[in-house]
Structure formats: structure tokens, C-alpha cells
């Protein structure tokens, strides 16, 4: 039970240090506003197909996740607090704490994106809301699972900013394609059972990703 309480403390620490500055959240909200308005401007009077719109929804979520989550471990290295953390807490708790925090952050973010997407883009009509919100939930979990370990990797590299999307894209592609597919199903008004296969893929992706990261995180963290 040690691990749960220490992970919880890491989570709280992340939360507090984020709310002290509100750097990430403010920057990310602005990012969302900017990208959404670019999409709105470029659509103009046109009515693009639902395929394109569900694709762009996940593009926005992917890139805002990329810019938000890349800082998870970089901030730790910059402030020089990673050494203290390494001495005080074991690696698994750090991983779990960060993972849960990332998941919370990305979930809030993608809910905001999804709501404003549905509100502002009138052509984008969701017919089956259960599928849509489950996709958002599971998609966020998948994004968080893969990007936590990648954030730990790039925190040790020299060029941090541009590296993250490059590393994350091939790994997240199966997840994104499945999410886009599920979103399409939601807009076509499919029943919940029809999307079960998609959800299975999303869940197993997340589980495999977390299990693998759990095994290899030690090597990255102790390095």
C-alpha cells in the first residue's frame, strides 16, 4: 500500500505545482482556442465531410496533448528537482503519479476541446453520445499512457521541444486511427454495441502501453 500513497503524493505535488503557476493550463487553453478558430476560419462557408471533421478533432487533441504533456518530466529536470525525487521515492510511484496526473490533464483538455468542437462546428453532429464520450475517455487514457513514458525519455535528450511529436506519432497512430473510426461511428448514429471492437482496441492499447512502460520506466528514470 506504500506505492499507492506515494503515488498519490506525487499526483498531489504535480497538481499543486501546476496550480501555483497555471502555466500549462493557460497555455493549453489558448492553444485550443487558437487551433479551433483556425479550423473555423478555414471552414468558412464550406461544409466539409464528417470524415474530415472527425479527423481534425483528433488532430487538435493530439497536438494539444503533445504540447501539454511534454513538460511532465522536462520541468522536473529544469528545476533540478528530479534528483531529490529519485532519492526519496521509488520509480514506480513516480510513474503512476505522473500517469494519473497526465490522464487528468488530458481528459480535462479533450473534454473542453470536444465540447467546444460540438458547439462551434455546426456540421459536426454527434448522434450517439455514449460512443463519443467513451471514445474521448479511452482516447485520453491511451494518449496519457504512451506520452508519459515518452516524456520521461525526451526529458533526458538535448532538443526537447520538437522531439516529442516525432517520437509519439508512430506509436499513437493505431490509437488515433481507432479513435477517428469510433468518432465516425458516433456521428453516423451507430449503436453502442457496434463500437465494442473499437473500445476493445483502445483498452488493450492502454493496458499494453502502461504495462510495458511500467517495466522499462526504471531504466529511464535511474539513468
Amino acid at each position: 500500500m506504500m506505492i499507492i500513497s506515494t503515488s498519490y503524493h506525487i499526483f498531489v505535488k504535480e497538481f499543486v505545482s501546476e496550480f501555483r503557476t497555471r502555466y500549462a493550463l493557460n497555455a493549453l487553453l489558448m492553444f485550443v482556442v487558437t487551433t479551433l478558430s483556425i479550423i473555423l476560419f478555414s471552414i468558412g462557408q464550406e461544409s466539409p465531410s464528417i470524415d474530415v471533421l472527425s479527423g481534425t478533432l483528433w488532430i487538435v487533441i493530439f497536438f494539444s496533448a503533445m504540447s501539454g504533456l511534454s513538460r511532465t518530466f522536462v520541468a522536473e529536470e529544469e528545476r533540478g528537482t528530479s534528483l531529490t525525487l529519485r532519492l526519496l521515492v521509488n520509480a514506480s510511484s513516480v510513474y503512476i503519479g505522473k500517469l494519473v496526473y497526465n490522464f487528468a490533464l488530458i481528459l480535462v483538455l479533450s473534454v473542453i476541446i470536444a465540447v467546444s468542437y460540438v458547439l462551434f462546428i455546426t456540421e459536426f453532429t454527434v448522434k450517439t453520445f455514449e460512443i463519443f464520450w467513451l471514445t474521448i475517455l479511452l482516447g485520453s487514457a491511451g494518449l496519457a499512457s504512451a506520452s508519459t513514458i515518452l516524456a520521461a525519455i525526451i526529458a533526458k535528450a538535448n532538443t526537447k521541444g520538437t522531439l516529442f511529436p516525432v517520437l509519439a506519432f508512430p506509436i499513437l497512430l493505431p490509437l488515433l486511427l481507432t479513435c477517428i473510426n469510433a468518432t465516425k461511428l458516433a456521428t453516423e448514429g451507430a449503436f453502442l454495441v457496434e463500437a465494442v471492437k473499437e473500445f476493445q482496441i483502445l483498452i488493450s492499447f492502454t493496458v499494453v502501453m502502461i504495462a510495458t512502460s511500467f517495466l522499462v520506466f526504471d531504466f529511464v528514470w535511474k539513468d
Binding site: 515518452l150 516525432v166 490509437l175 529511464v220
Partner: peptide
């Protein structure tokens, strides 16, 4: 790209191995 971004030999080796493992487990999903 990741390898070229890390100077230190051992760190480069560790991180790139970890990345190839992470990438390797996603391939079956395709």
C-alpha cells in the same frame, strides 16, 4: 532522431532501447 539528440553514449543506448521496445509493442495493433 532520438539517438542524434543525445550525446552521452550510455544514455543514448538506454533511451533508444526503451523507445524501440515501446514502439515494438504497438506494432501488433496495426
Amino acid at each position: 532522431v532520438l539517438r542524434s539528440a543525445i550525446d552521452e553514449e550510455e544514455r543514448r543506448a538506454t533511451l533508444s532501447s526503451v523507445y524501440s521496445i515501446i514502439a515494438g509493442v504497438t506494432v501488433p495493433f496495426f
